[in-house]
């Protein structure tokens, strides 16, 4: 196909469009929903709205021990918890969850 051949030759002699991924990373878009984090635990009132609205059951709120537990590998980054939180405790970060060997839980404790 003549039209495609010039394109193919151009691709052959130009630099690749892909990134050399582990060495060269694209900065995440600022609006991306990468992961959630309980950033301002001191404001948390442990109402449990985030737990009840989580579609993946990734958040557990324990009022007695003043602990919020997040399972990052269950979380689907829908950021419903960020929207429903009355005290705006939860932040959404644009970086994606890093791969890990074990599915760990992250505990956020109010001091």
């Amino acid at each position: 196909m003549p039209g495609m051949i010039s394109l193919i030759l151009r691709n052959l002699f130009s630099k690749p469009v892909t990134r050399r991924y582990p060495f060269e990373k694209r900065a995440p878009f600022p609006t991306a929903r990468g992961q959630i984090v309980f950033a301002r635990m001191k404001d948390c009132v442990f109402c449990g709205l985030c737990m009840r609205n989580c579609p993946a059951n990734a958040i557990k709120v324990d009022k007695a021990s003043k602990t919020n537990t997040l399972e990052p590998f269950r979380c689907i980054q829908c950021v419903m918890c960020v929207e429903v939180c009355p005290k705006k405790v939860i932040d959404v970060l644009p970086d994606y969850t890093k791969p890990e060997y074990e599915k760990t839980e992250i505990k956020f404790v109010q001091k």
Binding site: N11, F29, T31, R33, V79
Partner: peptide, 19 residues
């Protein structure tokens, strides 16, 4: 080639919606 063009669209979708 087509998937390369498609990537531009995926990027703008990520900017709008977050994913």
């Amino acid at each position: 080639q087509v998937w390369n063009y498609r990537e531009k669209l995926m990027d703008v979708l990520e900017k709008i919606t977050g994913n």
